[in-house]
């Protein structure tokens, strides 16, 4: 998954941290994920300031339970040595505690948010003549569960042959997914547009009947919030952290492709369901903002 270069870069960065720390006065060391953990450990040995490790995703989750041993060790070492760990969801907190053996009292949860929650709902008007579409947006990696969505898609298409499935993103699984869509006989309904820019992504959200995040394991899943901001109903796996902050979404076990298909069809079929989900999830989202979350992090700084 990662080239040798990446590890070299991580080691170089960690070495530089010592020097940077010595020359720049500071009060806390706030590092993000495994790549900066060693740098933070070095920094702390110089300044002896409190060290916070902010975990956005764990190797356990990224690899669906088969972690790269070196990365896992970097992560675990950072977690053990940090004075405080911030996890992006309760779900991630559980994993840090269960899979890395870290004391739960050391872990605080601060959920993610989205920029600009003010959305003009009227802007999301899907033209009547466009065929319904289901949107996926993530790295095409095993932990993101795109293959489960394809399998559910096959069941949907058997009943609703005009539904399109759009998979935005790049990744190691691309070829495998293309093959699978052929194998399932649904290649005409499936589109892989690759990587899109911000505007194109927003447009894709707005055009979609439903956004699906079928992750096998998702620390948070900020794209779900972006979909809501764009007025798109969301179906996410029960294994996603974002479900802790937005309740007005549909949820399904990632492996339950029958139920996934059932829910996709329900949203496409029942306009009332789509509009209630849209309305209620936007209301929820508007109660979230980054300022609030930043305030929580500052509070954590003060406890150290």
């Amino acid at each position: 998954m990662y080239g040798v270069d990446l590890f070299e870069e991580v080691i170089k960065y960690a070495a530089r941290a010592t020097e940077i720390t010595a020359n720049n006065p500071h009060d806390v060391i706030h590092a993000h994920d495994w790549m900066t953990a060693q740098a933070a450990i070095n920094a702390r040995s110089v300044s002896n300031k409190p060290f916070i490790l902010h975990i956005h995703s764990t190797e356990i989750e990224r690899t669906a339970g088969s972690p790269h041993p070196i990365i896992f060790n970097y992560e675990k070492d950072g977690m053990l040595k940090a004075d405080k760990i911030i996890a992006v969801s309760e779900r991630t907190k559980e994993i840090i505690s269960d899979s890395y053996g870290i004391d739960r009292n050391k872990i605080e949860v601060v959920h993610n948010s989205v920029d600009d929650c003010s959305t003009n709902l009227d802007s999301n008007t899907i033209p009547e003549n466009v065929s319904p579409s289901v949107l996926f947006l993530a790295r095409l990696a095993p932990s993101k569960g795109a293959d489960y969505l394809l399998r559910a898609g096959q069941k949907v298409i058997q009943v609703m042959p005009d539904v399109k499935f759009i998979f935005i993103g790049k990744g190691s699984m691309k070829d495998e997914l293309v093959d699978l869509s052929r194998e399932l006989g649904i290649e005409d309904n499936v589109i892989f547009p690759g990587f899109l820019n911000h505007e194109q992504v927003d447009m894709a959200y707005k055009r979609a009947s439903l956004f699906v995040m079928p992750s096998i394991s998702e620390p948070f899943g900020i794209t779900a919030l972006e979909a809501i901001r764009n007025g798109t109903p969301v179906l996410m796996s029960k294994q996603s952290g974002a479900g802790e902050v937005v309740r007005n979404v549909l949820k399904v076990d990632f492996w339950d492709t029958d139920e996934m298909a059932n829910k996709i069809m329900a949203v496409i079929k029942h306009k009332t369901l789509a509009s209630e989900l849209r309305k209620n999830s936007i209301n929820e989202l508007q109660r979230l903002n980054w300022e609030q979350q930043t305030e929580k992090i500052i509070q954590i700084y003060h406890t150290l």
Binding site: N248, L250, N262, H270, L273, L277, N280
Partner: peptide
């Protein structure tokens, strides 16, 4: 009912994960 369904669900007065699930099943 989409109001306070989480607290009702915590008391397990709803045999569904969400009011949306209740709607989908009923409509099916």
């Amino acid at each position: 009912d989409t109001h306070n369904w989480e607290s009702k669900q915590n008391e397990s007065r709803i045999p569904y994960d969400s009011p949306y699930d209740a709607y989908i099943n009923f409509m099916n």
